[in-house]
Amino acid sequence: MKTFSTWLTAFMFAFFSTLVLIALQYPVGARFMPLVVGIPGMALCLLQLALDAAHASGGRLVLYRFRAAPKIGKPEVEAAEPEFGPHTVRGEAVMIGYFVVFISAVLLLGFYVSVPVMLVTFLRRQAEASWRMALSLGIGATLIMYLVFAVILHIRLHPGFLTSAAMKAAGF
């Protein structure tokens, strides 16, 4: 029963429950819709947890029969590798790490510092591009970003808290 999907259902139940509890503190008019949505949401999560429990017990029965099959001469079916599983955990952790570090870097250092660093690092380490290609693509993409947003559209992208502070301290 302790599958990822079941944990996700439990998380969603906690999410709906928390929001329903918070909604109870609001005036009647304001809490009506959160309760109309949140309580059925909690009920659906409980139903899904019950279905997971039922399927888990049913699954054991199927597995038992499946293992017994070769004894009576049935061919054993080779299971296909699932899309996600222990074999993908490392790759997923690396990707999530890149994403979180990139967004944190954008917040602290701004787009114009974070984007070229992230592009070059990712292209070099994950996509296994050559240094020449990674550098040219990273710098080229940053230049295009600057031209499109700063020069043509006059859009000020987030400068980054540390970069802003450093620029201010330097007198810019």
């Binding site: 967004i103 954008v106 992230m118 994950q126 996509a127 296994e128 993409a141 970003m145 947003f149 987030h158």
Partner: peptide, 29 residues
């Protein structure tokens, strides 16, 4: 894998310029 970093940059820019709120980047994560 050659496309992923460019699309992530696209996503971060899109998220920020939609309302010009840096907090949306935190919500995105």
């Amino acid at each position: 894998r050659m496309l992923v970093p460019f699309i992530l940059v696209f996503i971060a820019i899109g998220c920020y310029v939609s309302e010009y709120q840096w907090q949306n980047l935190v919500v995105l994560v």
